[in-house]
Design a binder for these strands. Structure first.
Length: 222
DNA sequence: GACCAGGCACATC
DNA sequence: GATGTGCATGGT
């Protein structure tokens, strides 16, 4: 499995090159982006982030000083803005009470402890928590998203019913604990998903060259 | 005008 | 515990 996962990775990397994730100028901006991108096109998130930057609101203290209405107005282009305003403020309150508002202190915490803590924040689920750990905290945690899962299902590496932690374990149990590898691998999977996985069941131009009829690996038995 | 996007919480059964 | 639904904008 390790060889297979690494082969997929190298194939993607050769074809698509380094993805430069996460596109953000600071750790806080990465965290904000991780919350804003929930079920949302990245282009819309960029608009919201630009507005936040224009308002000089891209630090925990500056954002904390904004009224709910003001914050909502700034992030509006990212969609579901009422929900996301609450989620951002939930995170800020969490950062303040648990780590004195200090991101450096937060990331000094153990990855597993921090993950549990983040999952306790309303609005931060597994993918958002892991994105924060990996892309803002440089911690070796593999992020699973809809593209990743879809691609693995197509390759018959997991069953369609596999839970988040099972998909994550597939990567983390078979690959070295390497932050840079996890960073690039997930970004490449999203890139290939966006570019090649629209709606067709097979895609001959895909760098992965999957073939549902051909060389599929049997689904794991449940 | 439908459909989708780098999810998540909550209601209901 | 599984399944369904609201959230809301902007691009295709």
């Amino acid at each position: 499995m390790r060889r297979r996962l690494l082969r997929i990775y190298h194939r993607l990397y050769r074809r698509l090159g380094p993805q430069g994730w996460w596109p953000g100028r600071s750790r806080f901006e990465v965290i904000v982006g991780a919350i804003l991108t929930q079920n949302t096109n990245w282009g819309n998130v960029e608009k919201a982030i630009r507005q936040l930057r224009g308002a000089r609101a891209l630090t925990p203290s500056a954002m904390s000083a904004l009224s709910r209405h003001r914050l909502a107005t700034l992030i509006r282009p990212a969609g579901t803005f009422a929900v996301k305003t609450r989620r951002l403020q939930n995170f800020l309150a969490f950062l303040r009470t648990r780590y004195g508002g200090n991101l450096r202190r937060m990331f000094r915490d153990e990855p597993a402890r921090l993950r549990d803590a983040l999952l306790g924040v309303s609005g931060i689920g597994p993918e958002t928590a892991d994105s924060i750990l990996l892309y803002a905290g440089n911690m070796p945690v593999f992020v699973i998203d809809a593209y990743t899962k879809r691609i693995l299902v197509r390759h018959r590496l997991i069953s369609p019913e596999a839970a988040y932690h099972e998909v994550q374990a597939l990567f983390m149990n078979h690959l070295p604990q390497d932050t840079q590898l996890y960073n690039e691998y997930h970004a490449l999977l999203v890139a290939v998903g966006k570019a090649y996985c629209r709606s067709t069941p097979r895609c001959d131009t895909c760098p992965l060259r999957w073939d549902l009829e051909g060389h599929g690996i049997p689904l794991p038995r449940r």
